[in-house]
Design a protein around this nucleic acid. Structure first.
Lengths: 108, 108
DNA sequence: CTTATATGATACTTTTTGGTATCATGTAAA
DNA sequence: TTTACATGATACCAAAAAGTATCATATAAG
């Protein structure tokens, strides 16, 4: 598996980080702004933002002495792709089941 | 967020556990059989299976002195649902962009 | 320039996690 | 019943993760 995929799943494992992603749907936020929504120090929030960035889920752009954090839609692809593997698997199983029923001479 | 969702994302955070899920696409497996595919003790694999079960990603059914572990397609729903929240968000943003362009009188 | 502020960086603590080893228990087989 | 085997359970260890506190640095504002 790609290290990229691991970083993404790792980033999503923490409830605070998933909550941060949801707050960012409202638009870009500086580190201090994001920290304002959570009951922990700015340093802790910054760590979470770093993990989210490592996982490709957000992008960080400097603006003066601030850092703007925003969602990176493309970063969700590894999760979607991973899920689609199982979707495909289940679709195939369903098709096989249908075929088996259709070819089954014992049904009346 | 539901504790269920947290347990699911937590279960997916470990590469060994994601690999176990993939091996189970080939069909149900006992604990010992799953352990045979990995370079760690059976006890360690069993722990991973417990985490996967807690996350609803597999079901475990006793058969004699064995435990059959199999994929639980429904267990993936929390992840799919969580992703769909962002998909919806991005769809809306795209729609808004389209509308803005269509209503923009300044384009020639 | 001086000061205030947003962030970077480091060190440290506590908790969680992934793993091993060991022994107990329940079921199958002889 | 006796033995073998698959699993359950517990204790323990090491590494990673989550969080805090503190200080350094860079930029905006006066």
């Amino acid at each position: 598996m790609s290290p990229e995929t691991q970083a993404t799943f790792r980033a999503l494992a923490d409830p605070t980080r998933r909550a941060i992603l949801q707050t960012l749907t409202a638009g870009e936020r500086t580190i201090a702004e994001v920290a304002g929504d959570f009951d922990m120090t700015r340093a802790a929030v910054k760590k979470h933002l770093t993990v989210l960035s490592d996982g490709g889920l957000i992008t960080v752009t400097p603006r003066g002495r601030e850092r703007l954090n925003r969602l990176n839609p493309k970063g969700f692809a590894p999760v979607r792709d991973w899920l689609s593997f199982f979707d495909q698997f289940w679709d195939d199983r369903l098709d096989a089941l249908k075929t088996a029923i259709e070819e089954d001479d014992t049904h009346d």
